Amino acid sequence: MTAPLRLTALDEHDLAAISAALQDAVALLGDFEHSKRLRSFTMAFNRFCWEAGRRDRRVRSGVQIGHVTAARSRNIRQGAEDAVVNLLAIRFEPGEMPSGQVVCTFSGGGELRLDVECLDVVLVDLSRPWRATARPQHETADIGEPDEETQAP
Results as ranks from 00 to 15, higher is better:
Met1Lys: 07
Pro4Ser: 02
Pro4Asp: 03
Leu5Cys: 04
Leu5Gln: 15
Arg6Lys: 13
His13Ala: 15
Ala16Gln: 15
Ala17Gly: 01
Ser19Ile: 07
Ala20Gly: 13
Leu22Cys: 10
Gln23Cys: 14
Gln23Pro: 00
Ala27Phe: 07
Leu29His: 08
Leu29Gly: 05
Gly30Arg: 08
Glu33Gln: 10
Leu38Met: 01
Arg39His: 11
Ser40Val: 10
Phe41Glu: 00
Thr42Phe: 01
Met43Ala: 15
Cys49Lys: 08
Arg54Met: 07
Val63Gln: 05
His67Phe: 12
Thr69Asp: 13
Ala70Pro: 00
Ala70Phe: 00
Arg72Ser: 15
Ile76Ala: 05
Ala80Glu: 09
Asp82Gly: 09
Val84Asn: 02
Asn86Met: 04
Leu87Val: 08
Leu88Glu: 12
Ile90Arg: 04
Arg91Glu: 14
Phe92Ile: 04
Met97Gln: 12
Pro98Thr: 07
Gly100Asp: 07
Gly100Asn: 07
Gln101Trp: 12
Thr105Val: 11
Gly110Ile: 07
Arg113Met: 14
Arg113Pro: 02
Val116Pro: 03
Val116Ala: 06
Cys118Ile: 00
Leu119Gln: 08
Asp120Thr: 04
Val122Glu: 14
Pro129Leu: 05
Pro129Cys: 09
Trp130Met: 08
Thr133Gln: 08
Thr133Leu: 09
Ala134Pro: 00
Arg135Asp: 01
Gly144Pro: 10
Glu149His: 00
Pro153Glu: 11
